[in-house]
Amino acid sequence: MSTPFYVSPQQAMADRAEYARKGIARGRSVVVLQYNDGVVFVAENPSRALHKVSEIYDRIAFAAVGKYNEFENLRIGGVRYADLRGYTYDRDDVTARGLANVYAQTLGTIFSSAGEKPYEVELIVAEVGAAPEDDQIYRLPHDGSIVDEHGSVAVGGNADQISSYLDQRHRDGMTLSEALKLAVESLARDTNGSERTLTAEQLEVAVLDRKRPQQRKFKRLLGRQLQRLLDEGSGSAESTSDSEESSSESSSEE
């Protein structure tokens, strides 16, 4: 009888983590940013049937990258958890923090199990509050850890490069069109530093809008409304650059 090949627990976990990271990196990125009236989700996703961004509950939304069947199962489980908790207790008892803890337990259990492969997914759970300082954004990697994010976050694809780009340019108090423009610019950057052009048809965009009068704050931006916001963002960026150029010219004349 042959002796089974021994692999140390540390090496086994490292191999599982590397396997999951490679699967996640093959997917197109998702970007989440805070703006003055809420949280915007932007994904490079030409499909209109398979969503990367979805509503979970009144003020909570979910974004994911990786294997669709795996993160869709997690999304459905999150909706069931939120509905049951809201029905059993109170709608205000359903929070992004509680949902993130549930997802962390599920992902951590699967990642640690030797009987099945780790999930090739990375999740973002966000909740919009009554004010910008009350917004919550949580990132959940494949191993079930929870990262509390602020301002902006990117997952999947070239997430490190996109996150660095966002950290340098994102600021508090941005309008929706400005935040959307920044998100599209970050997604359009390739690993070699060159830029692509992403159209409205290639994007999946949704917001958690704190100013929305309905109890449910989630809304998808589609068609002409999305194109108008993209055009507004481009116009504001051009006007900003023009004003900077004129101010530099006036200072040089002095």
Rank of each mutant, 00 (worst) to 15 (best):
A188E: 01
Q225L: 06
R220H: 06
E204S: 06
T191H: 11
T175F: 04
L222E: 15
T191W: 03
L176K: 00
T175Y: 06
L222S: 11
L221I: 02
Q214A: 15
D190Q: 15
R224S: 14
T175H: 07
R228Y: 00
S194W: 03
K217N: 14
A179E: 06
R196V: 05
S194Y: 08
Q202L: 07
K211H: 13
T175Q: 08
A188N: 00
V207A: 07
V184K: 02
K219A: 10
R196T: 00
A183G: 14
V205W: 00
Q225V: 09
L208Y: 03
V207H: 05
R212L: 15
R212W: 11
Q225D: 15
V205Q: 02
P213C: 11
L198A: 05
Q225Y: 08
V184C: 04
Q214F: 11
R212T: 14
V207M: 07
Q227Y: 02
S194I: 02
R224C: 03
Q214L: 13
S177M: 03
A200W: 05
L229H: 02
N192Y: 12
L222T: 12
L208E: 01
K181E: 10
T199F: 10
R216Q: 15
V205C: 06
L229N: 00
L226R: 01
R212C: 11
S194H: 14
E178Q: 15
R224P: 09
L198Y: 03
K219E: 11
E204V: 05
S194R: 09
L222P: 02
Q214P: 04
S177L: 03
Q214E: 15
M174K: 05
E185F: 02
S194A: 13
M174W: 09
Q214I: 05
L198T: 04
L198M: 08
